[in-house]
Simulated assay, not measured.
Amino acid sequence: MSPEVAPDEAVDPRTSSAFLVNESLGYLFPAALRAAAVVGVADHLADGPRTPAELAAATRTDARSLYRVLRLLATRGVFEEDASGRFRLTSAGDALRSDAPCSARSAVLMNTDRSMWLPTADLSRCVSEGTSAFEHLFGLPFWDYFAQDEDTADVFHCGMAAMSDAENEPIATACDFPPSGTVVDAGGGHGGFLLTVLERHPGLHGVLYDRPHVLAGHRLDTPGIAGRWSTEAGDFFTAVPKGDVIVLKRILHDWEDEQCVALLDRCRTALAPGGRILAVDAVVPPGNAPHQAKALDLLLMAALVGRERTEPEFATLFESAGLKLSRVVPTSTVLSVMEAVAV
């Protein structure tokens, strides 16, 4: 393994070369993670360690190839190999199980799907041309492609639901909801976040607003919130249902500024007097420290047309739509809650 190199540390050219070569191999870890997720190997480790041969028989895979995948993932703490050659699932890797609480398996499959993976290999096109690589590879813009490819759309929406499951509770806790009224979750997917909000606030009614094929997979039909929710199909660039609070969770980062302003304008029009918009997104911090938003920003650049934004950039979006960013509430997740009101 090549040595760690501090950005401002003077190093021998050979050390720099070794560092960069090692960094260039970093894509093999998510490739291995995807392979493990696809064959469901983690599901077969819930009851304890097993040998590669046992796991291969359970997953109908090649034992030698599976071992090599597990060996690499063990270097990152997902699995651990013992002295007898058996592998166990670590606590850090436990969410790779499909039946784990807050399972990340669907999210891993989404993030490493070819619809996401292939455009990132063509980032140089994005840098040179200032546009997404997705349409060049797939013949259609991202959302148009998903509209005509049900299998890929299902991977995306199930993956987004899985990403949301671990963050819904802390984000709902951070949000300031009124004791009564209507909360509209615009582009709310399968409704995991709205479900959490309604469970926490029994005086609220919720509207899940999304495309018809997305709403078909909603998760709101539970006894605890019976009679307090409805679904409504539509295009949020055309109109948004009226509400006291309108939530945009992981939405604005999907779009360019002009489209965000148009969407926020629709939301402002739909707000009840004294209402608020809660935009839930990552806020890119200044400086050189790692942050998930800095990585996800490149995925957005490659596959969609959007980008992650700083707090001043969000403030400018709201101002352009006749709104004021009243406060930013950090959460224990990578996302923050940006509260906006009509000017």
Results as ranks from 00 to 15, higher is better:
Ala63Cys: 03
Ala18Gly: 10
Thr316Arg: 15
Asp149Gln: 13
Gly188Arg: 04
Met110Asp: 13
Leu208His: 09
His190Asp: 00
Leu296Ala: 09
Gly181Pro: 10
Pro119Trp: 01
Phe318Thr: 09
Asp154His: 11
Pro179Ala: 14
Lys294Pro: 07
Thr310Asp: 03
Ala153Thr: 01
Thr120Asn: 14
Ser17Gln: 13
Leu118Asn: 09
Pro119Met: 02
Leu25Ser: 08
Val214Tyr: 02
Ala10Thr: 12
Leu317Trp: 06
Leu198Met: 05
Ala104Cys: 05
Glu339Met: 07
Glu4Cys: 00
Val247Lys: 02
Arg60Asn: 14
Ala10Val: 14
Glu54Gly: 15
Ala293Thr: 04
Gly26Ala: 14
His157Glu: 14
Pro52Phe: 08
Lys294Gln: 11
Asn111Thr: 06
Val214Asp: 04
Leu264Asp: 03
Ala289Met: 05
Lys294Val: 05
Arg268Phe: 05
Ser124Trp: 11
Leu271Asp: 04
Val337Asp: 04
Val305Thr: 15
Leu208Cys: 05
Ala172Leu: 03
Thr333Trp: 04
Val108Ser: 03
Ala302Arg: 06
Leu252Thr: 14
Ser124Arg: 13
Ala153Tyr: 02
Val69Gly: 07
Met1Pro: 05
Leu28Val: 11
Thr310Leu: 03
Thr331Pro: 02
Glu9Lys: 09
Val245Ser: 02
Leu264Gln: 04
Ala18Glu: 14
